[in-house]
Design a protein around this nucleic acid. Structure first.
Lengths: 226, 226
DNA sequence: GTCTATAGGGGGATAGAC
DNA sequence: GTCTATCCCCCTATAGAC
């Protein structure tokens, strides 16, 4: 059936991209790994670029839906009360890291998701923006609510740093193990998530440096001077 | 002169790798950009892999020497006194970020250095380890001294997260500008460094979660029970 | 939908003249 | 040290039979 072939190609491509990177993997290798014919890629996807985009969109879409589900769940739980930045971060970070425990994929997905961010091509910018539009809106608002005193620009910067910590861990766990001579073990997703939440939450809460404070609104200054 | 040709190739390769990535850039493109003959690459470097390794080693070596210089300077300044984690982080982060102000390279180096970490190939593992051996030793000790209550494993994890924030910023400043719709401006290296030091220092100082505490050494337990 | 065969281009590396 | 010319490989994409 056609759906099977398409999925076999997607699965094989995902596996190979995760290990070797995008540019290094040829359609020949993918179709061989998938056990399908070379021409099937162009029949089902049209081009290698389109295949790459679908591989990434499939997994990122899945992760982002789970992120939004967790955030909605937390929003329902706190109601109108205050938000904890740890919980917002956990909703964002856990779905990506947690996939590494998927027994069917043996830790490959973590690397794959890391590559989504670091190797995304220009031709994917449109898809990428669309996949993250709602994420940015919803999580931006949640961070703003958890850290009301922080200018939005600083929230964006700090979220960017947090994403960097996440992506780097997803991509380069091999390097971490090697450089730490085995001291750090990234194979236990839950403890990775806890460490990451702890680190990034502290970073998000860091005091605001005066040079990055918002300029005072005119109304406030007027009130002081009058 | 031969040195000129070699450097022209290195410069052109660095510039092209920074923009397009390693696998996407051919030797033909590099030699064309450098204004030298195609065969010159194999004459001077032996292979594309060797060229790639030299491009990266040249820049990383330069950054790492500056890191060690700044750390030594700070160590001399504090003498036997306590160390501030901010200063250790600044010595590590600033040299990489600061290069983006190099007027001769117009911000390309930030991307290039980002790729050094995220696209380093297996064949570079040996060179990579050698380039970072002294960095890990010296900065590991400095962090341990600044955060004496933290188990070394946690220092390693947190430094890994900090490196992730750095690398992500170096590589993907375009995406940050685009997704933030211009709100975040990574072109001012000094304010990027300050934000990054602030974020990562807070993360490094985060309280130790009980499940990650070191098991008590036997001598201490013996002392308590006796 | 799936295959074979091939077009058509670009890649890294090298031999050998200068 | 530098060039030209070329070998031989692998790539994506597609035409056309089944």
């Amino acid at each position: 059936m056609s759906v099977e072939t398409k999925d076999q190609i997607l699965d094989a491509a995902e596996r190979l991209f995760a290990v070797h990177g995008i540019d290094s993997v040829s359609l020949r290798t993918i179709t061989q790994e998938a056990g399908v014919n070379l021409a099937a890629v162009n029949y089902h996807f049209g081009s290698k670029e389109a295949l790459v985009t679908e591989v990434f969109a499939r997994r990122v879409g899945q992760v982002n839906r789970e992120r939004l589900r967790l955030l909605s769940e937390y929003e329902a739980r706190v109601g109108a009360g205050p938000m904890e930045v740890e919980e917002v971060l956990r909703a964002f970070l856990a779905p990506a890291i947690y996939l590494s425990q998927d027994p069917e994929r043996g830790g490959m997905v973590m690397q794959l998701c890391g590559r989504v961010y670091t190797e995304s091509k220009e031709y994917m910018d449109g898809v990428f923006d669309e996949l993250f539009r709602e994420i940015i809106e919803r999580f931006g608002a949640a961070f703003q609510r958890a850290l009301p005193e922080l200018p939005f620009r600083e929230i964006f910067w700090r979220a960017h740093f947090a994403i960097g910590a996440m992506v780097h861990t997803m991509r380069d766990s091999n390097k971490l193990v090697r450089l730490s001579k085995g001291l750090c073990d990234p194979s236990d997703a839950e403890s990775v998530i806890e460490r990451m939440v702890q680190f990034t939450a502290a970073g998000m809460r860091a005091p605001l440096l005066p040079q990055f404070a918002e300029p005072q609104p005119a109304a406030v200054e007027a009130g002081v001077s009058s």
